[in-house]
């Protein structure tokens, strides 16, 4: 059964207002419908401005949709408020693109990872500390104790992204949106983060929306892939189908533009 179902999702942003004449609008997400199954990694692939990031934010209620509905576990989350919204937040999390920006520079590692626990009133005192350490160990930041009092600027890019992942998983969510989680990282540490996310998916039974512009990364991470272009989903299917047998001309153009490592395997 699908954990998430979106129906005719639309998001329109107002852009500059003209002095005379009306408001102008830009449609970021246009009539998007898809389902994400439990324990699935669902890839949203597209170029900048395709609406993939907006789409991810709509699913987490970081943005309000202009129209359409989003069902999470059968409940329409576009109508949640107050307590219900807070308990929805507990079940969903997000991993951001830039680990240099997504951690508050004034927070220590402990502060950052503990914050969701504090807000959700999940654990306090020793229990809170134990959970934070457990989360850090889960993302293989060891010894965790030695990192607790560090600030983000004292960590490397890879460590920061691991802290951000620990923070996202400390409340044990069911669903995670990962927005280009490795695109700001060095090539040599990307694979480590990707593998970590796949392992965590298995260990914690996570469902994941994986947003990326990199088709090869999407193929490695996802079960199914949706290709977005100008706010619409132009192609959706299993990763093999989308990449080996693309139907839409845009998907084909995208695939043929990806630079290939020549003479690596087949020569």
């Amino acid at each position: 059964m699908a954990l998430i179902t979106t129906e005719n999702l639309r998001k329109v942003f107002p852009v500059r207002k003209r002095l005379f004449g009306g408001q102008e609008y830009v449609t970021a997400v246009d009539d998007v419908s898809f389902k994400i199954h439990r324990r699935e990694v669902f890839g949203l692939v597209g170029e900048s401005g395709s609406g993939k990031t907006t789409c991810g934010r709509l699913l987490l209620r970081l943005l309000e949709p202009t129209s359409g509905s989003i069902y999470y576990d059968g409940v329409d989350i576009t109508k949640l408020t107050g307590r219900e919204l807070l308990s929805f937040r507990r079940r969903v999390q997000m991993i951001f693109q830039n680990p240099y920006e997504s951690l508050n520079p004034r927070f220590t590692v402990y502060d950052s990872v503990a914050e969701p626990l504090i807000i959700q009133r999940i654990a306090d005192g020793e229990e809170r500390r134990r959970r934070v350490i457990e989360a850090l160990e889960r993302v293989r930041l060891t010894p965790a104790e030695s990192l607790l009092r560090r600030y983000p600027h004292e960590l490397s890019g890879g460590q920061r992204q691991r802290v951000a992942i620990a923070r996202a998983l400390v409340t044990e969510p069911d669903f995670v949106v990962a927005d280009e989680p490795v695109s700001m990282l060095d090539v040599s540490i990307r694979a480590g983060i990707l593998n970590l996310m796949l392992d965590l998916r298995d260990d914690l039974d996570l469902t994941m929306l994986f947003i990326t512009h990199d088709l090869a990364v999407a193929r490695y991470m996802c079960d199914r892939i949706a290709v977005m272009h100008k706010g619409r989903i132009v192609e959706l299917g299993s990763k093999e189908d989308v990449i080996e047998n693309p139907q839409h001309p845009y998907t084909r153009a995208l695939l043929s533009s990806v630079p290939r490592l020549h003479s690596l395997s087949k020569t």
Binding site: S188, I189, A191, G192, A216, R219
Partner: peptide
């Protein structure tokens, strides 16, 4: 070698990427 191993290929499916441990 590590750099090349850690890049996911587009058309061939790999078992599992090997990453380079540690940091630059």
């Amino acid at each position: 070698q590590g750099l090349i191993r850690s890049i996911p290929p587009l058309h061939d499916s790999v078992g599992r990427l090997t990453s380079i441990e540690g940091e630059p």
